[in-house]
Simulated scan of single mutants.
Amino acid sequence: MLGIGEFAGLTGLSVKALRHYDEKGVLVPADVDERSGYRRYAESQVRAGVQTRALRDVGVALPAVSQAVAAGDALGALAVQRERVLALRAEEDRAFAAAETALRALRVPVEVVERQADATTYVGRAISVPADDTDELTDDHANDVFAELFRDVHDAGLGPAGAFWTTIRPGEQGQIELVCCWPTARRAETGWGGPDTEVGILPARTELVANWRPQDGEELPEGYTHPAVVALFEAVGERGIALGKTEVRQTVHGSSADDWHVEVMITI
């Protein structure tokens, strides 16, 4: 029989860890003195101790360690853990790449100007998602809504009369709405397009506009606040503009990789 210190030295497990594993039923000593509580291990347990240490060193959870050692399948548990770790690494790599994209995009200079805009009639359709799960607002979903609304506007002879835009605003019952809008040549009749369609007009207004144009191959970040929005609100703060209930509108101009740019605007 081996004392706990000897067993620790042979297996590479600390005495503290051995006591913990005993309490959890992972590596139970062969004998425990009733009076002193001193733990002693059988020589045949050295293999289980080494296996336990190897699996714990790579982060295998205690219940899985216990099961694998008891079943004689330590290598199988190691393979499962390897797949889990590799998946986590890939997820971390994607997160780092996205963060780098977002931070690089923030370095691109953004022009912010005031401009006068005429009244604009429009129609729009909203996509609603929970406010705590805005990742569901995908480009593909928005593109589908824009395409469908474009066909309806075109077929009705309403235009469209310019570039589309999106607006994000609070919805009902903890929802966030992404409203996909097309400007129209004239105001559509109330009820046009059905109950899911918003018919409205942006009144003549002064807008604060941020223009973001990619440079040196910079990409738009996905899932992050757009750098034009950041620059827009910086300009609001610098100019001391008091904002009430404000809707941020975003549109994309240009059709090729060489001439496209993003405009983000608010009415001031």
Score class of each variant (00 low, 15 high):
Ile168Asn: 03
Ile168Met: 10
Trp165Tyr: 14
Ala257Glu: 15
Asp133Ile: 04
Tyr21Asp: 02
Ala42Thr: 03
Ala87Glu: 15
Thr267Pro: 01
Glu247Gly: 09
Glu100Gly: 06
Tyr224Leu: 02
Thr121Asp: 10
Val248His: 06
Glu263Phe: 01
Asp258Leu: 09
Thr251Arg: 15
Val46Phe: 05
Ala79Pro: 00
Lys16Ser: 10
His261Ala: 08
Ala71Phe: 10
Ala105Tyr: 04
Gly157Asn: 13
Gly157Pro: 15
Gly59Pro: 12
Ile168Glu: 14
Gln67Thr: 14
Arg205Asp: 11
Ala87Phe: 13
Gly72Lys: 11
Val65Gly: 01
Asp133Arg: 10
Pro195Asp: 15
Ala70Ser: 14
Arg56Cys: 04
Ala257Thr: 15
Asp132Tyr: 03
Thr120Arg: 12
Thr246Gly: 11
Asp155Arg: 09
Leu27Trp: 06
Asp135Gly: 07
Glu263Arg: 02
Arg94Gly: 11
Glu91Val: 01
Phe96Ala: 13
Glu238Phe: 01
Ile176Phe: 02
Ala68Phe: 04
Leu220Val: 14
Arg125Ser: 01
Arg107Tyr: 07
Val145Pro: 04
Glu148Leu: 10
Arg47Trp: 06
Glu238Cys: 03
Gly37His: 08
Arg39Ser: 11
Asn143Trp: 10
Val236Met: 09
Ile268Cys: 08
Asp155Trp: 06
Glu6Asn: 03
Phe96Asp: 15
His226Thr: 08
His226Pro: 03
Val230Ser: 07
Arg56Pro: 11
Ala119Thr: 02
Val179Trp: 00
Leu13Met: 04
Leu220Gln: 09
Pro221Asn: 05
Asp259Phe: 07
Val110His: 08
Leu75Val: 13
Glu83Cys: 05
Pro29Arg: 01
Ala71Asp: 15
Glu247Trp: 03
Ala98Trp: 05
Ala228Lys: 00
Leu75Trp: 15
Gly162Val: 05
Asp196Pro: 03
Asn211Ile: 12
Asp118Pro: 00
Gly5Glu: 15
Ile266Met: 06
Gly254Tyr: 02
Ser14Phe: 06
His226Glu: 06
Pro29Ala: 02
Ala147Leu: 06
Ala97Gln: 14
Thr121Trp: 04
Asp140His: 06
Leu137Asn: 03
Leu220Asn: 12
Val123Asn: 00
Thr101Ile: 08
Glu83Asn: 09
Ala79Thr: 13
Leu208Trp: 09
Tyr122Trp: 09
Glu23Trp: 01
Val28Asp: 05
Arg186Asn: 06
Ala147Lys: 07
Leu208Gly: 03
Pro109His: 10
Gly191Asn: 09
Gly244Pro: 05
Asp152Ala: 07
Arg47Gln: 12
Asp139Gly: 11
Trp260Gly: 00
Phe164Asp: 01
Pro183Leu: 12
Leu202His: 02
Glu148Cys: 03
Ala54Met: 12
Gly237Leu: 08
Leu13Ile: 08
Gly237Met: 10
Val69Met: 05
Glu207Phe: 02
Val248Tyr: 07
Ala54Trp: 04
Val179Leu: 11
Val252His: 05
Val32Cys: 07
Gly200Pro: 00
Pro227Val: 06
Ile266Ser: 00
Trp182Met: 00
Asp152Phe: 04
Glu234Trp: 01
Asp140Trp: 08
Gly5Cys: 05
Ala156Leu: 13
Thr225Gln: 06
Ala95Gln: 11
Arg104Phe: 05
Glu92Gln: 15
Leu243Ile: 07
Asp118Asn: 08
Asp93Asn: 14
Asp139Gln: 09
Gly159Arg: 02
Glu136Thr: 10
Ala188Tyr: 02
Val262Asp: 01
Gly171Trp: 05
Ser66Glu: 15
Ala257Phe: 07
Ser255Glu: 15
Gly223Met: 10
Arg239Trp: 09
